[in-house]
Computed example of a mutant assay.
Amino acid sequence: MEKTAALDSLSALAQPTRLDVFRLLMQAGPATGMAAGDISSALGIRANTLSANLSVLLAAGLVRKRRNGRSIRYFPETDQMRELLTFLMEDCCGGNPDLCAPFSARTTAEAAPCDKDKEA
């Protein structure tokens, strides 16, 4: 991941509403996602506010969308998040990657179910 892409992702998540939206979508999972109206209801966000925040997350590559009839469904981009985490951890622990092994093992093990559930 390039530094500018990492900064775009971090910037997109550095706002409370967008972070809440992204975390909610991660809970729903990359195969299921959530309809915009359901996100709005779950977080108590007005539709226009949600739309603006989803646009920022889309531009950063952290979510994707798919039209489903009259509604739009949003999905977390787990690959983008994994790349961001890898970028942040790649020079971990002053050249002693064993110190980061518990974190790396945890994120790798937890990421596996998301990969097989992800829609094309």
Rank of each mutant, 00 (worst) to 15 (best):
F87A: 02
R70H: 06
R70P: 01
K65H: 12
V63Y: 05
R73V: 15
E77R: 01
P76A: 06
R67H: 04
R64I: 03
Q80K: 10
E90Q: 15
E77M: 11
S71V: 13
L88S: 01
Q80F: 09
Y74I: 12
I72M: 09
V63W: 03
D79L: 15
R66Y: 03
E83A: 12
L84A: 02
C93L: 11
N68W: 04
M81R: 00
N68T: 14
R73E: 04
R67C: 02
R82K: 07
R82A: 11
D91Q: 15
S71Q: 15
T78S: 03
M81P: 02
R66V: 07
L62K: 03
D79Y: 09
E77K: 01
E83S: 14
S71N: 15
L88M: 12
E77S: 15
L88F: 15
T78Q: 04
E83C: 06
C92M: 15
P76W: 12
C92V: 13
E83G: 05
Y74P: 03
M89V: 15
V63D: 02
K65F: 04
V63F: 06
E77V: 05
M81F: 14
L88I: 11
M81H: 01
L62Y: 12
D79I: 07
C92S: 15
E77A: 15
Q80L: 07
L84P: 01
L88W: 07
R82G: 10
E83P: 01
R64F: 07
Y74V: 04
E83I: 04
M89P: 00
R66G: 03
V63R: 02
D79P: 09
L62D: 05
R70T: 03
C92K: 10
C92R: 11
F75Q: 01
L88N: 00
N68E: 11
R64G: 14
L84F: 08
M81V: 09
L84W: 05
R70C: 04
Q80E: 02
F87Y: 14
M81N: 00
R66W: 05
D91T: 12
E83Y: 13
R64L: 07
T78W: 03
E77F: 07
E77H: 11
P76V: 09
L62C: 08
T86I: 03
R64S: 10
Q80N: 06
T86F: 14
V63L: 06
I72K: 10
T86D: 08
